[in-house]
Design a protein around this nucleic acid. Structure first.
Length: 233
DNA sequence: GCGACAG
DNA sequence: ATCTTGTCGC
């Protein structure tokens, strides 16, 4: 889908997509999804997965898995071009879309306001939140070592683009930013409500586990309903 | 020019 | 991201 794009073309495209971003309050959130990608080193096969959980209970209800071929390389600032096509393919397998999707990466906390979460949000016309494990853009400001402590992350111009959030004591924070169709504050509140006993919030943590099992052959492609209270993860 | 750099 | 052993801390 983006395999023929040069990084220059990609950057221009990101700037155009960013003009379409909308931020507003979401109401009555009942389902939240986590999306992630896994792949073998030096392989063009991407294993994409999206898990859907009840909100705010964080109980896994269903998940979808699908593979996708891409040769687009990873490059900081262009993660969406590598992952979004694969995520859109799994997204099609989901009939009842979740209220909001959490992506493993940034939303507008990005040099051109088009991190993977914003990119997916625009193309899928879906509310999304970015939750990254390390900082890509902006001035890092570490929150104090207290659970749910946060600090604002601003760029060189002083614009608030996201937050560093301490999800677990003695662990590095995660970086939260709005992707699309949601506000920065609500994104932060939702991520706080999605934290379990791990540093990574439940949606993306479960998505990561499931795509990894998919990659090693323990799970198959397709849409799967989770009936019995599954304690796999 | 130099340093930084999601997954 | 993936590949991997040991090791520090609660």
């Amino acid at each position: 889908m983006y395999d023929h794009y040069s990084f220059e073309d990609a950057a221009t495209y990101q700037i155009e997509l960013a003009k379409q971003l909308k931020f507003h309050q979401l109401e009555r959130i009942q389902t939240i999804a986590g999306a992630d990608i896994s792949f073998n080193k030096n392989s063009t096969t991407m294993y994409a997965g999206i898990v859907i959980l009840s909100y705010p209970e964080m109980v896994l209800k269903s998940f979808a898995l699908e593979t996708y071929e891409t040769s687009f390389p990873y490059k900081a600032g262009f993660l969406g071009f590598k992952e979004v096509p694969a995520l859109l393919k799994v997204w099609e397998l989901i009939v009842e879309k979740p209220d909001v999707v959490v992506l493993d990466g940034n939303g507008i906390l990005h040099p051109r306001r088009m991190g993977v979460a914003s990119h997916f949000g625009i193309l899928a016309n879906q509310a999304t939140i970015g939750c990254a494990k390390s900082l890509l853009h902006g001035k890092d400001h570490q929150p104090e070592n207290v659970r749910y402590s946060t600090t604002e992350i601003k760029n060189n111009l002083g614009e608030l683009l996201g937050f560093a959030l301490k999800t677990k004591i003695n662990c590095a924070p995660v970086y939260v930013s709005a992707g699309h169709l949601i506000t920065a504050d609500q994104s932060l509140a939702i991520i706080k409500n999605s934290v379990g006993n791990y540093r990574i919030p439940e949606p993306t943590r479960m998505a990561h586990n499931i795509v990894n099992d998919f990659r090693i052959g323990k799970l198959k492609a397709g849409f799967h309903e989770v009936s019995a209270p599954l304690t796999l993860f």
